[in-house]
Design a protein around this nucleic acid. Structure first.
Length: 602
DNA sequence: GCCGTTTTCGGCCCGACTGTTTTCAGTCG
């Protein structure tokens, strides 16, 4: 993958330049270019061949030249030179909290520190504390930073962090004098994983609130406890710890603080630039004209004052949310020419799909395969939460581990679903199945059986680690298998298209450009699997699918009635991808939904 | 190194905290 590989190289150039003491703006340019390369769905090689690389955001003459050099020669001179100059283990040390590029350069220059082992050695021997500008406290902080890094490890999935944050936020809200509490940070933006939890509250006596906060049961460690900020860690499985920050802010700047601490950093930078352009200043205390506070109490007023729509938190990533026509344009591409711009800046940006829009769950399992509950129990539970329909999609015969249904059992199961549907008033149970896409690209059930189902989700559960050179030689790739499945007129949707499990299993090598093109052409929908371990499609792929005009299915893949709750993670992810109500098929009434599903079969 | 209703040079976000400082640099979010 060219984009991600180049992104990593540019990030490394930036890290090394930083340690080398280069100009901060030049470093930042490499970081921004790296981000574009990582996120764009554009074909880098094709753009390079046509000499159009500079059409990408943050790619100018310089970085375009380096990309071309990499394509031509497999290396980038700037990077090679930096790597010859500086030890390879140095950039990794930038991860350590409390240790930045300046100190790192100093300890490399004066003490020859080249990696983590060297660093630990100079800490223990006391030579580090003797460096100018570094005292015993700094050294202690660095040592603690190393320890924290090892405890906190990787990022925490949304589905783990959000319930913890909500529990803590509720406890903060119950404290004396607390008027308002909000969860901010990447959690509010619905990012699939988060680094920490940020909570904001409005209270008069910050010191008292923080004092109670750091004394909550379940607090593993107290990192800071001041008058406006408290910082703790809570314990996670596998001896990991998650940091939680609580900030107490006054009511008149609550909106500004909420905006600021929600981020993302990149979004905030752009927002402040807009303020500066109007000769104003934006900070976590408010929007100012000189000393005069223009607004700060309500977040939406800040956006309004800056001439922007109320940009939903999930879109605040500087991925085009400031442009008009932000929707329907590939991430990383420059905005349309000024003459194309209408006065409808951001129209539709505030109309993203919501949890309330979802009228049913289109991928649930029962005890016929590997679910916990019966058809009736799954339906009742869905009805109780206000849904109007579910699609029962149990596993097909090849998913032996999941107790997949043989053709005979499936025929009986179809009857059972129809019977349950007839008995339940005011609720629709759709006959579906989750049909395996086999290793040869064929489907696990014959067309005659698929035709009996009203909704067919086709998924890959085997042969995910296909690789071109070894075991997969001569066999169809995951992309080819997915494309083949979509050609079948009975396949309504592709389930968890990339097969990833966040933090556990990487996505399959899938040519998403080819998949969304075929989905649009064949009228096949793509699933947003809302299970927080999957979130598949992910945000950027959703964006790509929408750009191609593909319709989405939102589903929890619930194996248990409690897992219906996970729909909200899917909604957050869909919103991050820019999906509106009209982009998601299960916002339709049962009648319209059936029509929409049936459309492909005609 | 990028970029332009500030347009080919001269800008590039803002404030808090902290430690080692006697006026501020480094780091963080």
């Amino acid at each position: 993958m060219l984009g991600p590989e180049l992104a990593r190289m540019f990030e490394r150039i930036a890290d090394l330049l930083e340690i080398d003491g280069a100009d901060a703006f030049r470093i930042n340019s490499y970081r921004r270019a790296s981000r574009t390369l990582k996120e764009t769905s554009a074909d880098i090689a094709a753009l390079a061949a046509e000499g159009r690389l500079t059409e990408l955001q943050a790619i100018g003459k310089g970085t375009a030249g380096r990309i071309e050099q990499f394509i031509d020669t497999g290396r980038i001179d700037v990077l090679t030179e930096l790597e010859e100059k500086l030890p390879e283990g140095l950039p990794a040390l930038l991860e350590i909290p409390g240790l930045g590029p300046k100190k790192l350069a100093l300890m490399h220059g004066k003490l020859g520190v080249a990696g983590l082992d060297d660093l630990k050695e100079v800490i223990d021997s006391g030579t580090l504390a003797a460096l100018p500008g570094l005292g015993p406290t700094s050294v202690k902080k660095i040592a603690e930073g190393i320890a924290f890094l090892q405890r906190s490890g990787e990022r925490t999935p949304l589905g783990i962090a959000l319930p913890i944050a909500e529990m803590l936020a509720a406890k903060v809200a119950s404290l004396k004098g607390v008027k308002r509490v909000e969860i901010a940070g990447s959690l509010r933006r619905g990012k699939e994983t988060v680094g920490d939890i940020d909570i904001l509250c409005d209270a008069a006596d910050g010191k008292a609130v923080i004092k109670d906060f750091v004394a909550f049961t379940g607090v593993k460690r107290v990192l800071a406890a001041g008058a406006t900020k408290g910082s703790i860690t809570v314990e996670l499985p596998r001896a990991r710890e998650l940091q939680v920050d609580l900030r107490v802010v006054p009511g008149e700047s609550f909106g500004a603080a909420l905006q600021y601490f929600t981020g993302s950093k990149e979004h905030n930078v752009r927002l402040r630039e807009l303020a500066v352009r109007r000769k104003w200043r934006l900070s976590e205390y408010g929007l100012f004209d000189g000393e005069k506070l223009l607004t700060g109490r309500r977040e939406q007023d800040i956006y309004k004052k800056l001439g922007l729509p109320d940009i939903p938190p999930q879109l605040r990533e500087d991925r085009g949310e400031f442009d008009s026509g932000w929707h329907g344009r590939a991430v990383g591409q420059r905005s349309s020419s000024p003459s194309d711009r209408g006065d409808d800046a951001g129209a539709g940006i505030t109309e993203l799909v919501t949890l309330e829009d979802i009228r049913g769950d289109l991928h649930v399992h029962t005890d016929a395969s590997d679910g916990r509950f019966s058809i009736e129990q799954m339906a009742q539970a869905a009805k109780q939460r206000g849904y109007e329909y579910i699609a029962v999609c149990d596993h097909s015969k090849s998913s032996a581990i999941a107790n997949g249904l043989s053709i005979k059992r499936m025929e009986k199961h179809i009857e059972a679903i129809r019977s349950a549907d007839r008995k339940l008033r005011g609720f629709t149970i759709i006959v579906g199945c989750e049909c395996d896409i086999l290793r040869d690209g064929s489907l696990d059930y014959p067309d005659e059986l698929l035709a009996e189902c009203d909704f067919v989700v086709a998924s890959i559960h085997s042969g995910m680690t296909w690789s071109r050179d070894r075991r997969g030689a001569g066999k169809p790739s995951p992309t080819e298998r997915t494309l083949a499945a979509m050609e079948n007129k009975y396949v309504s949707a592709i389930g968890h298209p990339t097969g990833r499990l966040i933090g556990q299993r990487p996505p399959m090598e899938l040519d998403m450009g080819a998949v969304v093109e075929a989905a649009a052409r064949t009228g096949t929908m793509l699933e947003i699997n809302a299970n927080w371990q999957r979130l598949d499609l992910k945000d950027l792929h959703i964006r790509q699918a929408l750009d191609a005009g593909v319709l989405l299915v939102m589903a929890t893949d619930a194996h248990h009635t409690e897992q219906y709750d996970q729909m909200r993670y899917g909604v957050m992810t869909a919103r991050r991808g820019g999906a509106t109500k009209g982009d998601v098929v299960n916002t339709l009434s049962p009648t319209l939904l059936r029509k929409r599903i049936a459309a492909k079969r005609r």
